[in-house]
């Protein structure tokens, strides 16, 4: 059975997009069929994976998440989610084969569509909870169908709280909360969890993933310990991944869509992520371990990890 994973945090700039792309590509190197759904109007995931030419084409032909939400919620038209999936989109190779990665793209128009949804449905007397419930109902039905075709469905959620983000989190088998272990980034963790779940059930507790970790920072060590302690306390509302994602200078470069005919330096997964591939593979293993039984894809165990 496939696994649905939401990558979310109210705070911006903590590594949600990087986690979504890097984890998606890592799972794909292990043979899994991966779908990434971009729910962020900034469209950074879409731009990074699809590149400007494909993204423009998808936008012009209405194959975006906002076009789908607009059709389903505002125009009340039937629109299949499978029609907006862009397949074979990855520009990354592993063992000389293209990664099995598909995407549902978002563009900045998503912001206008979300605003329109809220304005129109609120005018019609529908509450925020009902709007979120409506989106969740629609997505749930369509995601159920997609579960048969993909091993992993990853939602890259927008910072802050939107109805689509909330629906994705509630649908997910696992919520990953990328967090920089510092004062500013950790302040919003309890508030975000409370706003989504109140007190989450054990199997719904989000998992905090420390990102941009600097091994020598005492400040970060303090906040990592604090969050791990709080997670382990009775009544703790979240859990913390064992693996930590280090800060590496080449990760922002890896996120840029820079593979062209004459610059093929980052064509392969290992060349793209380099030393970051090791923690990524460790993260993918931990994700598989903590997913509910039977969820996700089990690789054959012959993983090729760069570096060492």
């Amino acid at each position: 059975m496939s696994a649905v994973i939401a990558i979310a945090n109210m705070t911006g700039g903590v590594g949600k997009t990087t986690t979504a792309i890097a984890l998606g590509e890592t799972l794909a190197t292990q043979g899994a069929e991966v779908l990434i759904i971009d729910l962020d109007a900034q469209g950074n995931t879409s731009f990074s994976i699809a590149g400007p030419r494909i993204l423009q084409n998808l936008s012009e032909t209405g194959r975006t998440i906002e076009s789908y939400l607009n059709a389903r919620l505002l125009e009340r038209k039937s629109r299949r989610i499978s029609d907006i999936i862009r397949r074979s989109v990855s520009s990354v190779l592993h063992d000389d084969e293209q990664l099995s990665l598909s995407i549902i793209c978002a563009t900045p128009n998503l912001r206008h569509v979300e605003q329109k949804i809220i304005v129109q449905l609120t005018k019609a007397g529908i509450s925020w909870e009902e709007i979120e419930g409506e989106i969740r109902k629609i997505l749930a039905r369509d995601i159920t169908n997609l579960r048969k075709r993909f091993d992993y469905i990853l939602f890259d959620c927008a910072p802050g709280i939107s109805a689509a983000t909330e629906a994705a989190i509630k649908l997910a088998d696992l919520m990953i909360m990328p967090t920089i272990p510092d004062f500013v980034s950790t302040q919003g963790v309890p508030a975000f969890i409370d706003s989504i779940f109140g007190e989450p059930d054990d199997n719904k507790k989000p998992w905090v993933l420390f990102t941009r970790v600097k091994a020598r920072s005492r400040h970060q060590r303090t906040y990592k310990s604090l969050l791990r302690e709080n997670a382990n306390k009775p009544g703790g509302t979240y859990r913390v991944f064992q693996v930590e994602m280090p800060e590496m200078v080449h990760v922002p470069e890896a996120m840029s869509q820079s593979v062209t005919f004459t610059n093929t330096g980052r064509m392969s997964y290992n060349a793209k992520w380099r030393d970051f591939a090791q923690p990524l593979h460790a993260l993918s293993e931990e994700v598989r371990r903590i997913l509910p039984n039977g969820c996700g894809f089990q690789p054959d165990g012959n993983l090729q990890v760069h570096g060492g």
């Binding site: 494909i54 862009r86 397949r87 074979s88 989109v89 990855s90 520009s91 190779l93 084969e97 293209q98 099995s100 593979v259 005919f261 093929t264 064509m267």
Partner: peptide, 13 residues
């Protein structure tokens, strides 16, 4: 690179 671009263009491997 050509094969990868071809796969991306025709939306299948």
């Amino acid at each position: 690179m050509v094969r990868l671009s071809l796969s991306r263009t025709v939306e299948r491997r």
